[in-house]
Design a protein around this nucleic acid. Structure first.
Lengths: 226, 226
DNA sequence: TTGACATTAAAACAACTGTTTGATATAAAT
DNA sequence: ATTTATATCAAACAGTTGTTTTAATGTCAA
């Protein structure tokens, strides 16, 4: 124990409840929020070890002491970043009226998943960070599976319960689910290689909607055999 | 340019041609080979940044200067490790007599791929290292795709050319290939999460042969629709 | 104004990193 | 025996890393 470590931790008030009005013409985000945003991008791009605190605080435009001040250390910052990446909108999970046929549900589920995984919009690092965490789990992985992956998996299992014969064993239903999710995830996890293999000429076909349509067709084709 | 770097590099003779007889009762591998073996395990486990030279030379049981002596620096050691991981037996690619029906070829191809990806034998780090490189490409990735992924992809595309209607466009054939490979790769890339989702009770069903059978059935079911 | 608190700032710390040096041992070649 | 090339070793180097300290600044109520 050569190093001294502070025991107390300032809990950022700003994270708890957003203040009534953010002061206009000021930076849109305060320090901990800017830290989370910058850390997310860099962690997703380079991983936990590859990202350096100085690069993060540089992009966030805050002082280096802010990491210790708001998150105690690099690891806590990482965990909070991962949580932020998945818990952003936990309510946005697909759901349907009870009368919806399972084929429609599966179509929607695949489009939802592919859409989120390949979303080119603002927080593009969300999916990449989660993928990275799933491939090389850390402390944050257990919570991640419990809060996000498991519920999504349950939704898919419910659809497959309707699509597969009633006597299908659990492991077979799981494998079928992995066959569907694996197709979707592949384009996110191994995007660089896929880009290389497809080439410039045909890459215009590899848009999220087209991919989701193909996966839906491929999977339903296999499942709806009589 | 504050640092000096050696321009010359000792090319390890021992890597070129194995000496007539390895001296008995001596360590089975010489220094560069032991380095490659140890580096492979640790790079696969922790990635390029996460692995430290001292940990590698410690496991290899060689002096720290051996890295510079045989491979110039850490990056070259990494690249050689990746090459070693995939070029280990480049001749062991599946091939069939010309009269083999394409359904059998696809069955063999899937079993071959899953078998290699989930091989529990000695060099278990090979597949993990390649997966990691494909998810986060570095200098070694281009060679990797050219020498290993591309040829494998071409074999699969050949099979699909027989299975799909003749007028199927290239992008559709590629997507179908990714649907098959994606299922296989999923169990390797995201093994930790799959283990968590499956649980202890059903994990006995998730053996390579069973998985390959399921993927074959799922895919052929979809492809051989009349 | 005063005092208490939250936040930011610059600098330094100690440990770790990849890399290089210079010495030394070994064995083959001259 | 001397030279030469190969190989190994401990030690040190310089740069980077995460982390901490200390002081300064801002904010707002008493």
């Amino acid at each position: 124990m050569s190093r001294r470590t502070r025991n107390t931790l300032r809990i950022p008030e700003q994270l708890r409840v957003p203040h009534e009005e953010p002061p206009p013409s000021a930076p849109l985000l305060n320090s901990p929020e800017r830290l989370l945003e910058a850390a997310g991008e860099i962690f997703a791009e380079k991983g936990f070890k590859g990202a350096t605190i100085r690069e993060i605080i540089d992009r966030a435009g805050v002082n280096i002491a802010a990491v210790n001040y708001y998150f105690r250390d690099k690891e806590r910052l990482y965990i909070e970043t991962v949580k932020q990446a998945v818990c952003f909108r936990p309510e946005t999970r697909p759901s349907w009226p009870s009368a919806t046929p399972p084929t429609v549900k599966l179509h929607d589920f695949i489009h939802f998943l592919v859409g989120r995984l390949l979303d080119k919009n603002k927080p593009a690092w969300h999916a990449r960070l989660v993928m990275r965490e799933m491939a090389q789990p850390s402390e944050a992985c257990t919570e991640l599976v419990r809060d996000y992956i498991e519920p999504m998996s349950e939704i898919l299992q419910g659809i497959l319960r309707e699509l597969l014969p009633p006597d299908t064993p659990r492991w077979k239903r799981l494998m079928t689910g992995f066959s569907i999710v694996g197709q979707c995830v592949h384009y996110c996890s191994h995007k660089p290689v896929i880009t290389l293999l497809v080439g410039e000429k045909d890459c215009k076909y590899f848009e999220p909607a087209t991919l989701a349509d193909h996966i839906t067709q491929f999977s339903l084709n296999s499942l709806t055999r009589t």
